[in-house]
């Protein structure tokens, strides 16, 4: 079976048959995602179709630092958001809206859910590969939110040593966050937040 990366490379060279294989592979998965986030009664199939059209038009921009499906899902969620926005503009008078309802969380949630989920998963994975002492202190401090007086009881370290472990782990996380190209997507969120 041909790998996604090979199909993507071929598609980036203009091979539409390779792209068709990606469409076949991901259609159902994308449709399921669209169904989850798209509350509109109609047009889910159109969104999936439009997602693949946009993906084909922009395939050269795809970089292998996220999965192909994650990239597709961002295009799809963008389309859902646009569709909702247009529908709201068509059907709702601003005067009829209660105060603060324009900060409708449901509009930004699909982006954030997926993106924060991916970031969280990558961070968890990254933390797993830290040296044992750093991993333990970092998890207890950052995820479990324990104070050092409890951490040192668990690890048997001095507070200074535990703090050093945490800082070493934190510095590595800082590098990881900068090196990961997770950092293009926030522009999309910021744009959405600015509009509301």
């Amino acid at each position: 079976m041909i790998k996604d990366s090979q199909l993507i490379k071929l598609a980036q060279l203009g091979d539409s048959t390779a792209f068709d294989k990606l469409v076949d592979k991901y259609w159902d998965k994308l449709f399921a995602l669209t169904t989850k986030y798209c509350k509109l009664e109609e047009g889910k199939e159109d969104i999936v179709q439009e997602t693949f059209i946009q993906a084909w038009q922009n395939i050269k921009k795809f970089q292998a630092n996220s999965t192909f499906f994650f990239w597709l899902s961002r295009i799809g969620l963008n389309l859902i958001y646009e569709k909702r926005r247009k529908k709201k503009l068509k059907t709702i008078s601003l005067d009829s809206l209660p105060q603060n309802c324009l900060k409708d969380e449901s509009i930004t949630t699909p982006f954030e859910e997926l993106e924060i989920k991916e970031l969280k998963e990558k961070l968890y994975e990254f933390i797993q590969h830290l040296p044992r002492e750093e991993k333990i202190v970092y998890r207890l401090r950052m995820i479990e939110c324990l104070p050092y007086r409890r951490i040192i009881r668990i690890t048997g370290q001095s507070k200074t040593t535990a703090e050093r472990c945490f800082r070493r782990a934190n510095s590595k996380v800082s590098k990881f966050l900068q090196e990961e190209n997770l950092l293009r997507w926030p522009n999309q969120i910021i744009q959405v937040l600015k509009e509301y």
Binding site: E112, I116, N170, Q178
Partner: peptide, 16 residues
């Protein structure tokens, strides 16, 4: 700046 930004970004990721 890098240390605090990383700490805050990680904290908000784990505690959205």
């Amino acid at each position: 700046i890098r240390e605090l930004m990383a700490a805050k970004a990680a904290y908000l990721t784990f505690h959205p």
